[in-house]
Amino acid sequence: MTHNVAILGASGYTGAELVRIIATHPRLRVAALSADRKAGQAMGAVFPHLRHLDLPTLTTIDEIDFSQIELVFCALPHGLSQALVKDLPRSVKVVDLGADFRLRDPAAYKKWYGLDHAAVELQPEAVYGLTEFYRKQIKGARLVAGTGCNAATVQFALRPLIEAALIDLDDIVCDLKNGISGAGRSLKENMLFAERSTDVSGYSQGGKHRHLGEFDQEFSLLAGRPVEIIFTPHLVPINRGILASCNVKGDPKAIHAALAARYAEEPFIVVLPFGEAPGMGHVMGSNFCHIGVVGDRKPGRALVVSTLDNLNKGSSGQAIQNANLMLGLPETEGLMLAPVFP
């Protein structure tokens, strides 16, 4: 059986990545693509690397017949999905790749995104889309909120350690490197090639990054008390990829054993042998996350390094992984492509 899906916001990077992955998915069919500013254009004209695919012409959202759609991927800018999802037929399942439903508390959403929540009545039914930890809830969900890509990378490294009480919750320091595509496709002066190609710089530092809202929510829920990590993100001059280096206080061997045990049956999470750290280039273009643990020269400290592709496992791949569960399909369907290397 083939399931008709629509991609809203298809002219962005995550929209294009959804199309690229679904092109080899045996059970999903792209039945509608929206991109209001590029309505009327062919997807292959907007993204030439997709010219070989037989895809519907880009339209406005209003032109889509949702009675023919089983699941919608919302790849829209923050703040646009909430009002839209309210008006969709209840029969349509939704995977939102943006931030509109990630934070369970509307006040937290207002704090981190500066917007009033436009669909408060829908928020209680939204399931947080970190698949490996919310799998059961996602299977029965109508609305899934995809995680932030930075948030996913760090959570894969730390959630099992917080659950097992293996690290000091008041001494977690995370340094993160993020590819340029994480900033989206809209034109920004500080994202010009001449300004980014030879530069590495921090952004949203000093506790200002929006994904801290997800860390606060998820880590505090796990610990049963408030947990606030130190998180410093940096932009690096590569197209895609995230690498998070998490410095924690705890026994390195016990930390490695806990991660290896927790992810032993997970198809997309690879825990490297103790002492090995992963690189971004080993997961590019894939739905895989690699995690490594290295002991520090100071006894009782460890470095936990996690890396994934921000456009794939951090966003569009994760969205399809969740959609597979929501539609009753094998979770790995269409997602087992090997990373691209070099």
Rank of each mutant, 00 (worst) to 15 (best):
L88K: 14
T332K: 11
P273Q: 10
G79F: 12
D251V: 13
Y13K: 03
V19D: 01
G213V: 06
H209W: 11
V173K: 12
E331F: 04
E63P: 00
C149F: 10
G292H: 05
M336S: 03
G275Q: 02
I230W: 10
F66M: 11
K298D: 03
F231K: 01
P342M: 09
V200C: 09
H117F: 08
G9W: 11
T147K: 02
L222A: 11
R90T: 15
I69S: 10
L76F: 07
V120W: 13
A152S: 12
G202E: 07
F47W: 14
V72G: 06
K111H: 15
G292A: 12
L335K: 15
N310K: 02
M191N: 09
L221R: 10
Y263V: 09
L97W: 05
A42M: 08
Q205P: 00
L158N: 03
F288R: 06
V248F: 03
V293G: 01
T198L: 02
A183W: 15
Q321T: 07
G15Q: 01
V248T: 12
Y128R: 00
H209C: 14
I180V: 10
A16Q: 08
F274M: 04
C149P: 01
L166H: 09
L71W: 04
N4T: 12
I255E: 01
T147F: 06
K177A: 13
A16H: 10
T14C: 04
L33T: 02
D251Y: 03
F231Q: 00
A75V: 08
I61H: 13
L311W: 00
I269Q: 09
R135I: 01
P273D: 11
V127Q: 02
I320Q: 07
D100C: 05
I242V: 08
A152H: 14
P124A: 10
P339Y: 10
L103T: 04
L33H: 06
A119C: 01
D105R: 03
Y109A: 06
A164C: 08
T131N: 11
F156S: 06
H234F: 15
D65S: 13
S34P: 00
I162V: 15
T2I: 15
T332Y: 08
D116A: 09
L166P: 04
V283H: 05
D216I: 14
A75K: 01
G285D: 00
V173F: 07
L222Q: 04
V271R: 05
G44R: 13
V95W: 12
V283Y: 03
L303G: 00
L272Y: 05
L187F: 14
R135M: 01
A302T: 07
L55G: 01
P124L: 15
P252V: 02
G98I: 12
V271T: 11
H52L: 10
C149G: 02
I269E: 07
Y109F: 15
M1C: 06
Y109Q: 02
A119T: 05
P330A: 12
L161K: 15
R29A: 10
C74V: 10
I22S: 04
A16D: 00
D296E: 05
Y109N: 09
Q217H: 11
A107T: 11
I162C: 05
H256R: 05
L221G: 01
G98F: 11
I172P: 07
L308P: 01
E125N: 02
H25K: 10
N150Q: 09
H256N: 02
T14Q: 04
K110G: 00
R27C: 13
R102K: 14
L55Y: 07
E132V: 12
A126C: 04
R297C: 05
